[in-house]
Design a protein around this nucleic acid. Structure first.
Length: 198
DNA sequence: CAGAAGATCATCT
DNA sequence: GATGATCTTCTGT
């Protein structure tokens, strides 16, 4: 499979575009020397001057990284117990971020199971806090370069890319006019990649 | 410095 | 569908 990390130019585009295009891409995490990965299947777009829900709506110490170069990880701690992983997108003029909401686990599933404390496979990584727990992502990864290293995003598999060429396979919810809900992009492949392997 | 809210999750009814 | 867990971050005083 292709193991080329996406270049920074991939992220230097409008937030919703990046959120859409991240579907099917491979999120890779090297944890204690073990490779864990899964295909991105749900994202959410935050950004733009009118998005009050975006952490970049106001510039604070926490959101400062969103004003930096695109292609880095923005990790924050929420509800006293969960971490959320974002990709910084756009430019310093239009800061934005894409929340990675869910992935289909593919590699290193045994490790993910252990880290998730016995939940069923269907719920290993089906939420922003869950995937961070499964992949060992915390504030230590804040600011990490997603273009290479222990936390990176690679091109998707040919099968995933082909499936995503059909717009019908992508669900979209929210948007600026839907009660200020952020754009959410959902990809549900015909055959969930989880095999009983690993 | 106090107070409230929060891009969530697991569990319970 | 509702609730508790748990604490950082931000805002107003």
């Amino acid at each position: 499979m292709s193991r080329a990390a996406l270049p920074a130019s991939f992220y230097a585009r409008p937030t919703a575009t990046v959120a859409r295009d991240l579907l099917g891409k491979r999120l890779v995490r090297i944890l204690d020397g073990t490779l864990l990965s899964g295909l991105v299947c749900e994202t959410e777009a935050y950004g733009g001057p009118d998005d009050e829900a975006s952490h970049a709506y106001r510039r604070t110490p926490r959101s400062a990284i969103m004003y930096g170069p695109p292609g880095r990880a923005y990790v924050y701690f929420i509800y006293g117990m969960h971490y959320c992983l974002n990709a910084v997108v756009e430019t310093d003029a239009q800061p934005g971020a894409v929340l990675i909401r869910a992935i289909y686990p593919e590699e290193g599933i045994a490790v993910m199971r252990a880290r998730r404390g016995g939940v069923s496979d269907a719920h290993l990584c089906d939420g922003p806090g869950k995937l961070c727990q499964a992949l060992g992502i915390s504030l230590a990864q804040n600011g990490a370069e997603l273009t290479g290293g222990d936390l990176r995003i690679e091109a998707g598999s040919p099968v995933a890319e082909a499936d995503l060429r059909s717009t019908a396979r992508i669900g979209v919810r929210g948007g600026p006019d839907a009660r200020h809900r952020p754009w959410r992009f959902i990809w549900r492949p015909d055959r969930p990649p989880i095999e009983s392997a690993n």
